[in-house]
């Protein structure tokens, strides 16, 4: 992947301009999913797309400094934990598994809170898994390329 990175000035400028907008749109999709189309899954994919764009333009190593693989693995598990943890919390509060009504004073408020929290869990897991997969491919690609270069030198 690192070989692709050259002096692409227009690409760099446009990417720098567009990446914050993609982040903003991802957050909108994440937290506006109750009212418009979208939700955690789409938001996670869009969020990871912004970081993948950064990695494609500036190189995977720089992107890994922004968000390290270790943090990504933690986040991927954290999302599932948030989701399942919400279910356990509703049991502790006296409801069934994932029965959000017991989370707040009224049924509708509890549903709102529950849906917001589990969508956040979905978004975090999807975002980090997409990046984990992308970085795994990019890393292996670098290994293959460097071993190619070594064997050509021999």
């Amino acid at each position: 992947m690192a070989v692709i990175v050259k002096h692409n000035l227009i690409l760099r400028v446009v990417a720098k301009f567009i990446i914050p907008l993609i982040f903003l749109f991802a957050l909108y999709v994440q937290f506006h999913g109750d009212f418009g189309p979208g939700g955690g899954f789409q938001a996670g994919v869009i969020f990871s797309a912004a970081i993948i764009l950064y990695a494609l333009v500036f190189g995977a190593d720089k992107a890994k400094r922004v968000i390290t693989p270790y943090v990504l693995r933690l986040l991927a598990s954290l999302g599932v934990l948030i989701y399942a943890g919400t279910g356990v919390a509703t049991i502790v509060l006296g409801g069934n598994f994932l029965e959000y009504g017991v989370l707040a004073s009224s049924q509708v408020a509890g549903q709102h809170l529950g849906i917001l929290v589990i969508e956040l869990g979905v978004g975090i897991t999807v975002m980090s898994v997409m990046l984990i997969i992308f970085f795994a491919f990019a890393e292996r690609g670098q290994a293959v390329l460097s071993s190619n270069a070594e064997s050509e030198q021999e």
Binding site: L98, Y100, G114, I118, V126, V129
Partner: peptide
């Protein structure tokens, strides 16, 4: 549920258990 988007209501609330499964599949 008080959620205007029926798709989200079904996905996150009525079928919340299915969606948990989906997230686990991605994980």
């Amino acid at each position: 549920t008080g959620v205007p988007n029926v798709v989200t209501a079904v996905l996150a609330s009525y079928r919340g258990f299915d969606t948990l499964g989906e997230v686990t599949v991605i994980f």
